[in-house]
Design a protein around this nucleic acid. Sequence first.
RNA 1: GGCCCGAUGGUCAAGGGGUCAAGACAUCGCCCUUUCACGGCGAAGACACGGGUUCGAUUCCCGUUCGGGUCACCA
Length: 487
Amino acid sequence: MTDRMIKTRFAPSPTGILHIGNLRSALYEYLIAKSKGGAFILRIEDTDRERYVEGAVEVIYSTLEACGLQHDEGPDIGGPHGPYIQSERLALYQAYAEELVSRGLAYPCFCPPQKSELTSEEGEAEAFGYDRRCRALDPHEARERRAAGEASAIRQKMPLEGETSFTDQVYGTITVQNKELEDQILLKSDGYPTYNFANVIDDHLMEITHIVRGSEYLSSTPKYCQLYQALGWEIPEFVHLPLILGEDGRKLSKRHGSTSFHDLIQEGYLPEAIVNMIAFLGWAPGEETREIFSLKELESLFHIEGINKAPAVFSYDKLNWMNEQYIRALPFEAWRGRVKEAADSAFGGRPYDLDMLARVLQPRVTKLSDIPGMIRFLTDRLPLSRELFHNKRARLDADRAAFVLESLYPRLRGLSDWTETGLLETLEKAGLELDLKKGLLMGALRAGLAAQQVTPGGAVETAIILGRSESLERLEIALSFLNEDKT
RNA sequence: GGCCCGAUGGUCAAGGGGUCAAGACAUCGCCCUUUCACGGCGAAGACACGGGUUCGAUUCCCGUUCGGGUCACCA
């Protein structure tokens, strides 16, 4: 449009959770600005007093921070166009509304609120909008009724004929008949502006160049265009984003699910993986086929032309894969810290080899919340069964396992160098002397130590994590079980 | 229902008038391996349908179907 610096904003309402759809909007807003060296600002849209949730603003701050979406202006850091919280800008909206009333472009409406009926029956939903009843009221009479204290909202007069069109950067030119446009409420009877109104005022005053938001706003955009025109303001660029759907094909919304950033973190996903995931929901870089990108890389890669029109289904399978990629790429120190958090409480003060545990876990964990389940066999002595000692490939069965462990136990007991090399040497030596295959030894040992056929890491790693004394105790238990149960 | 938008494998998607229609996730198979996992290799799987335009349409146009959004003093 112009050579002006690009400026985008993220304008969430503080309703308690940050839905991943909202987060995706924030991400794209950030990327669109940053890819062109522009500014990204944060504005809190708290004009719905009924939905306001205490502490919700902090959730917004912490989420943006966790994702690395640093804003350039906002309630917490200020900026040239503050305040950045709409409830602190009420006088501003009221002034503009009155201006439109006095210019005959808006009018007070005394009709009772017709909030949406959630109980509307399917099929018979004959929803026709507001009938513009109060539009015909005599302005003087209206003024007197307001002066007398009668509650009223302010509605904008929409043109009754003609058409309005605008060009969206993603969806192209969209045209609607003006008669389809409702006389939208600008100011509610409680004096608060509607989203429709406050949004336009603030976006203009804050010099937002690109309005980036979900495509659910596409059909009300003509109304915003009418507002810009009424106010004599330049219409900004619009960038509507395809919706994110749930796996059932429905819009992924607050009403639908618990798909908030917070929930995903609780589930054990890394913020970086979530960001990477949602970056590719409705956007692709083009010829580049790589899909793992840091936020910094995305900043230089992102372009509006790559945004898709069709809604995208959010896939947890893909998120899982991305999370694995990020976990594996984590520096070992950082990863070890994560494992420590989960494992310390599980081991309850008992010593264990954290380094080894983190090492075997890093290539195997899908999400952080999997860790407790994966290491339970290390902290709890699980019940044994003869089937555990069966392994077709190694030609192992319970009786052979008993023999193997019987021979192995004294050797291990005599081993003071309880390390990977020490253990491997002992096992190899035992294998040679007893003429046993490695798979047989390892299989028996693993089952004896873990009481589980599937373990992260092998027998030796498990022995090291458990430590010498716990390992030996477990082997004793396994031996007596195998011998006792022998027929 | 009105209005708006959309449609490439199960999912995310590249591409675009002439291609054996990329790639990723998931699935399946093989290999590696002390199991699983990780890793490597490979397989199966798509242009919604009908009309045009064209020498030629998955690609452009129209219609149909299907999907989604929206019709609040919510955002």
